[in-house]
Design a protein around this nucleic acid. Structure first.
Lengths: 329, 329
DNA sequence: CTGAAAGCGCTAACAA
DNA sequence: TTGTTAGCGCTTTCAG
């Protein structure tokens, strides 16, 4: 059942069927009706494989994400999907899960025409892309990016946001502040750590090196375990913990509770992202909100624009964050 | 830069290049080397658009999900993605978000050859598929399914699982049990509600109709709001709440706390799914665990098998659930 | 073991 | 306004 059958059925040529199918206007209304009737009658469906080859586009957008199970990324993906589908594109989701090999050559999917463009949230992939000089490929960076890389990006000002979080903690009288960071493969991890260090220095404080933790996981469990270790080690524990992710922060609160520490009385906890669960737990999590959906939407719009005008130089855009003061700090 | 260029470069025909590219064995080693060198030298990448048309397969699996922002679905999607990618397939993610029109004709994507097969987690889509007699199409149902529909599926025994949850509540002395359900468009909602009703009846209890709630959202906020309403309405509130989703249950706990009710002392709360956060909150959530990753993996394997042998009649598979007794009930 | 050539189903010149 | 026709880049008989 191909376009040829429909053409025969309608008594026209394949070109005319194609025109009708694609909504071209230069078709006599009467002919259009006849074609549409033939399509209807035959139950014909266009073969997008053929169309894709002919038009040399897949109308697929590749999204590379470290872990779709993390609510932060899930929300961003929703944002991407909403604008993509609205523009007639579909989303190819690639969950790298930090597994080497899985993220190995996703950019090759662009070269192999499997996707028309890509949105990359994965730092490893970004580094690889930059290293490979995939700069000419149609992709944009989201959350993780290299401002100097020449690749369009959207994210937030991590340095400033983390500084605000830190100053908030200081303003509440906290002085013994620990940083619970993720692996430094992440740009945001580096920037937030720098802000942590600088803010402390500005306040005339010297950070205890044992309080700067680099976990290589954002899981609740990782945060909980680290918090237990932090709270039970040595004599004087920290009086505040700045976690670079809400998932970590929630784990931290759980861990502290398990060893009898009160939040925020004994230890204040501040998170990052403002995922939906943050407002639900006890105590409600004070955190730095990122506009997750908008991050995804903006990334998708940038990419789509790049596809339309490949020559245009797209801006790097920084979206506003917001300190959400709740009860945990 | 097409296969023809590579052929010229290697001094062979396109057929030979194709053979090498596809790992056919009937190529002289020496020739193979020459072709591989040419590929290397030219930076050639195969055009999958062309290959797809020729082989009449997209190697894409469509996944229809109500809301990827819900951790339950996100985990299942991870499961799907892990086996799909392992088998050389990629995942087209479609987030229906309950938006009509978005879920309208996803099955058409199969007919249009945009995907080779589909995994459907969305009840609306399933109903539509069944109604449309899409039975011949290569798709499988996951979590939501019609046992009599003739479509391969994987899920759990919702009736039995919900019954266990209810009996657990009863065994703890709870008698005034409310059901916080989602919209009845979901099979699981119907089955769990039936189990709720039956278990109560077996115990000689008559449910208070005002305690059977049908929310049309699984959001934390929806659960919180409903719990507040439940707890503050009338004189004698329920002494237990069975929520059909952990997200709802977590919202419930938050809502109860906001009006001064203690969990589990005043009101026991039991959830469903066992998403990662369930073990982290205070009190840790008692819930019915579903094997989320495995649900996704099984769905993907069923589908892949169906693609390989279209004629095979695949089984409906029910995976085991497990009651996770924690502190909330 | 290799090559010639047909053709997957569609779109878009170009011609009429 | 419509039709004819040449490919898009690949895989795969079929011959040699």
């Amino acid at each position: 059942m191909s376009i040829l059958n429909v053409a025969d059925l309608a008594g026209v040529s394949v070109a005319t069927v194609s025109r009708v199918l694609n909504g071209h206007t230069n078709v006599k209304p009467e002919t259009r009706l006849r074609v549409m009737a033939a399509v209807e009658r035959s139950g014909y469906r266009i073969n997008e494989l053929a169309r894709n080859l002919r038009t040399a586009e897949s109308r697929l957008l590749l999204t590379m994400v470290p872990n779709i199970g993390n609510p932060f990324y899930a929300e961003i993906v929703r944002g991407i999907d909403s604008v993509a589908s609205q523009q007639g594109y579909f989303m190819l989701l690639c969950n790298t899960d930090g597994e080497l090999g899985r993220e190995r050559s996703y950019f090759d999917m662009l070269r192999r025409h499997r996707a028309d463009g890509a949105i990359c949230l994965d730092p490893t992939a970004i580094q690889q892309a930059l290293a490979e000089e995939s700069g000419a490929l149609p992709w944009v960076a989201c959350c993780e990016f290299d401002p100097a890389g020449g690749v369009p990006y959207v994210g937030i000002d991590n340095y400033r946001a983390a500084g605000e979080a830190m100053r908030y903690l200081l303003s509440r009288g906290r002085r013994r502040i620990a940083l619970m960071n993720s692996g430094d493969g992440y740009l945001y991890a580096q920037q937030r750590q720098q802000a942590y260090l600088d803010t402390l220095a500005e306040a005339g404080l010297t950070p205890d090196l044992r309080w700067i933790l680099n976990l290589d996981s954002l899981d609740y469990e990782a945060g909980a375990a680290a918090a237990v270790a932090l709270a039970t080690a040595g004599s004087d524990g920290p009086d505040a913990i700045f976690a670079v992710s809400d998932t970590l922060a929630i784990g931290v609160i759980n861990g502290l509770r398990s060893v009898g520490r009160k939040v925020p009385d004994d230890v204040a906890v501040i998170g990052f992202d403002d995922i939906a669960i943050a407002a639900q737990i006890d105590p409600p999590l004070t955190t730095v909100a990122q506009p997750m959906q908008e991050l995804g939407q903006t990334a998708a719009r940038l990419l789509l624009r790049r596809l339309v005008e490949p020559a245009a130089t797209l801006p790097g855009v920084l979206l506003p964050h917001r300190l959400m003061m709740r009860a945990s700090a």
